[in-house]
Each structure stands twice: as C-alpha cells, then as structure tokens.
C-alpha cells in the first residue's frame, strides 16, 4: 500500500486510531485542578510515574505506554529548556509548546502509518499569577488538543466518561478544599472512572473515605505552587501531605 491511495490511507488511519484506543483501555486517568494556591496534579501509578515537572511553571500528567510517555516528556522538556535558555523562562508557555513543538510532532507521528504509534494521552498544566491565568490543556494521541476552561482537566481513555467526570469535578471544586480533600476527590473520580462501567458520580461517603490504599498502586500528586517569590513551582506531595 502507498499513501497515494486515499481510501486505503483513510482505512489505515481509522484502524490505527482504533488500535491505539484499544491499547489504551487499561490505562488509568490523570487529573489537574486549578486552585487558589496553585494547580494540583494527580495520578495513580503502578511502578511508573504519571506526574512530571516540565519547566519552572509547567507540569505534565500522562497515561499510556511508559516508553511513549517518556518520549513525549523528553521532547517537551528539551523544547522548553532550549526556549527558556534562548529567550527567558516567561516565554516558555504551554500554548507555544503545543502549537509549535508537541502538537505537530504528535500529529506527524500519528499519521506515519508505517511506524509504531505513540500511545499516550496527556494533561499539561501551567500555573499563572491568578487562577484565571492558569492554563490546562488536554492533549490526545493524534496531536489534537484543547484548552480546558473552568479549572479542571481529566485525561482518560473514554471521552464520554471523561466529560462526565470533568463536569462532576467542577461542581465538587466550587468551595474551599484542603489538599487531602482534593486528593480524596481525585481518588474518588479515579475509582469511578476505572470501574468497569460508565462513570457514576461517587457519593459523599466515598469522597470522604479516609482510605488512600490502592492495591499494587501508588498515588502521585504534586502542586504547581502559585507563590510569586519562587522560580521553581513544582513540588511533589509527600505521603504525610496526602493524608
């Protein structure tokens, strides 16, 4: 087959999309919440990390194949540091990285139908001076991306469940919440999304449950702190801070 056979190319792309979605089914969701004190990123890993520092004010939460997550991570880190070194840290933004670096690279990789696809879904976060300045971006494996309004981003393999989880989380995040409360909220949404059925909003008792234990998995969470006097904003949460 050659790529100048349009119908077969369309078939190949459709098959590729279906294949990637099928491969991603076992991956578990990641979350980012914009809050007055910063942006909280949350994931649940099983030996591999899911939440990463990218640059001074930028972080990534991703799900998918660990090797592909690593490729994306390294690509964005290199682009961010070259940009920051050539110009200034203030010039390194999620919008520019997605528009000019990661977005085109992911799309080109997805359309290279003779090479192995990148199986990864991402949430990028950039902390601003105020919550209104925060940027949350949801990036798909095919290079498409959208910026999330209202301070919540969820990365999940099922678009319908992801949308339902985002709407539920927005409502839950309306008031003031402590870090342990935010972690429990994210964990409750994580459990609902990983149950083998459509997303059902967790009840209050589940959200309030003090248990953070998940068999063979580890909770990962980090703040992108909003404090203006610090250059480095990324701070992973300790076990004590989670509970």
């Amino acid at each position: 087959m050659t790529t100048d056979e349009p119908y077969r190319w369309l078939d190949a792309i459709a098959n590729r999309r279906e294949y990637i979605r099928d491969q991603l089914k076992g991956a578990t969701p990641v979350f980012a919440f914009s809050r007055p004190e910063g942006i909280l990123l949350f994931g649940v890993g099983s030996g591999q990390s899911k939440v990463f520092e990218i640059y001074d004010r930028l972080a990534l939460a991703a799900l998918g194949h660990p090797v592909d997550i690593e490729k994306i991570r390294q690509t964005v880190i290199e682009a961010a540091h070259l940009e920051g070194f050539t110009r200034a840290a203030e010039d390194v933004t999620i919008r520019r990285l997605l528009n000019f670096s990661l977005g085109p690279a992911l799309k080109a990789g997805f359309e290279q139908i003779f090479s192995a696809p990148l199986m990864v879904e991402c949430v990028f976060a950039e902390v601003g001076a105020t919550p209104a300045d925060d940027v949350l971006a949801r990036v798909n494996f095919d290079g498409s991306y959208r910026f999330q309004a209202h301070g919540v981003a969820v990365g999940h393999t099922n678009p319908a469940d992801e949308t339902a989880a985002v709407e539920w989380l927005r409502a839950q995040l309306a008031g003031a919440l402590t870090t342990p409360q935010l972690v429990r909220l994210a964990l409750a949404a994580w459990r609902a999304l990983t149950a083998d059925k459509a997303f059902v909003p967790p009840d209050a008792a589940t959200v309030a449950s003090p248990s953070l234990a998940i068999e063979d998995r580890v909770i990962e969470a980090a703040w992108l702190e909003r404090r203006g006097d610090m250059r480095l904003r990324y701070r992973p949460l300790t076990a004590a801070e989670l509970s």
Binding site: I54, Y55, D56, R73, H81, F85, L232
Partner: peptide, 16 residues
C-alpha cells in the same frame, strides 16, 4: 550562572 541553572534543572527534570 544561567547556563548552570538551566543545566541543573534540565538534568533533574529529564533524569528524574
């Protein structure tokens, strides 16, 4: 100093 700053940050972020 700027080069070192970037190099140290880059190493920590890329190598975890």
């Amino acid at each position: 100093a700027r080069t070192l700053q970037t190099a140290f940050d880059f190493y920590r972020r890329s190598q975890l």
